[in-house]
Simulated scan of single mutants.
Amino acid sequence: MVSLSSITTLAQAFDLFDRSEIDAFTLDDAVYLKLTNVIGDAETLSRVLAPVADYYASRIMQFDVGNGGFAQAAYNIPDFFGPAAQGYRTLGLTEAADLIDRAAAIATQERAKFTA
């Protein structure tokens, strides 16, 4: 099996996947890591194609929430809540999108307490 660190481009990642040399999880990690090098903020995210934005925003939200919960996501990537919810809606995961929207509202309320 090919190591994730040896994958240098998105084209290579998809080629390896097409040839069954990497599995879907490795492809997902490779795509996410490559996009992380390009998309650093919500402004940049707003300039990429919608399917890419949906994927990246939902994936970075998944990573942050999985790593430290919604509190960590609210601290690290507050501008990605809306795009992430949209990404989950695009995937048909409306309950997850609604949960992200509720977490965003709570985070906004909590931030207001500290900036008032």
Rank of each mutant, 00 (worst) to 15 (best):
T36E: 09
F17T: 04
I60E: 05
R47A: 05
A103E: 12
L49S: 15
F70L: 09
D29M: 12
A24W: 10
I106W: 10
F14A: 05
L35T: 02
S5V: 02
V2E: 10
A96H: 03
E110N: 05
L49A: 10
P83G: 09
S6M: 05
G69A: 08
G66I: 03
Q109V: 02
D23A: 08
K34G: 01
L16R: 07
I100R: 03
D54M: 01
E95K: 15
A74D: 02
M61A: 14
A50Y: 06
L10C: 13
G87M: 00
F114N: 04
A73K: 05
D79T: 06
A30S: 13
T108N: 12
D15P: 14
G40C: 13
F81S: 04
I100Q: 04
I106E: 14
R59G: 01
N37K: 15
R111W: 10
D98V: 01
V31I: 13
R89I: 00
G40N: 13
A97S: 04
F114D: 03
D18I: 08
F80C: 03
A85F: 01
P83I: 02
A53Y: 01
M1P: 09
T115W: 11
E95C: 02
E95D: 13
I100L: 12
G40Q: 12
A71Y: 00
Y88L: 04
D28Y: 13
V48K: 06
R111E: 12
D98E: 13
Q62A: 11
D23W: 07
T90N: 08
A53W: 00
Y88W: 06
F80I: 02
F70N: 03
Y88N: 00
V52A: 04
P51N: 10
L4A: 05
T108F: 12
I22H: 02
T90E: 04
D29H: 09
F25K: 13
D101I: 03
A103R: 10
D18A: 13
L16C: 08
D98S: 08
E21W: 14
A57K: 01
G66F: 07
M1F: 05
L27Q: 13
S20M: 11
L49E: 15
G68C: 09
R47L: 09
A24E: 14
M1G: 15
F25I: 11
Q72N: 04
L35I: 03
A30L: 08
S46P: 11
A30V: 05
V31R: 09
E21Q: 15
P51H: 06
A30D: 04
A50M: 07
M1R: 12
A105Q: 15
A57Q: 02
A11P: 00
T26V: 15
L27T: 08
D64G: 03
E95P: 01
A57D: 02
R19F: 14
